[in-house]
Amino acid sequence: MKILVAVKRVVDYNVKVRIKPDGSDVDIVGVKMGINPFDENAIEEAIRLKEKGLATEVIAVSLGGSANQDVLRHALAMGADRAILIETDVDLQPLVVAKLLKAIVEREKPDLILLGKQAIDDDAGQTGQMLAALLDYPQGTFASAIEIEANTLTVTREVDGGTETLALTLPAVVTADLRLNEPRFVKLPNLMMARKKPIEAINVTALGIAIEPRLKLIQVAEPAVRKAGIKVGSVEELLNKLRTHEGILV
């Protein structure tokens, strides 16, 4: 069984992103970047399936500039066998990413495609479902557990108010929730070894897919900041404020 894992390079989750002075976009020049956390869960799951003898090959794929090699090296150091970089400097939106991934799926013919459930930069949470739709594959989104037996993948999904379990006929698309697993730490020797693993670069134009953004960005802005209120000294004072000033808990 072959597994394809899509990884996105995003601004590190600890960084508070700044806006360009003209409000045209966010300013991420020189900001610390890394692998999207949910995508790290996706790689971890793929590698565990390989370690259990259920998968034979794990391929990591990323889309973006040559800087994306760092997240692919990270995936290789975790245990992916090889990597593909679809090279472009255009800012890609989820529908386009899904179309480009579909082209790679058609070439590589994986039995399972794993992605993170959302990227922490655009918070869209669409790519996995869109890819499944374009391939007419079943989808298991927000996965917190998966099991594979023969040609069936059983997925437990985190939904509002509980979990639900589906059986998907492979090939299928699964998007990872944080609860799926605890990604391993990458050790330095693995990082060194990962340098020897191949990264194949494909220029996006070779895939013949229109990549222009559908959504036009008009502007970005800071949200209204919630103002800090006051400190109260006691439970009595707190209740008094809630009752007299807010009219609640009367």
């Binding site: 508070k16 992103v17 529908l95 922490i120 008009i218 502007q219 802005a221 949200p223």
Partner: peptide, 29 residues
Amino acid sequence: AMISDVLEIKANNTYVRSIYAGNVLTTVL
């Protein structure tokens, strides 16, 4: 395209939504 978790709907299919865990608001058309 799909527009997720829209905060405000403006005229002419223009939307405000948040990115980066709500730290930035974007207006998209």
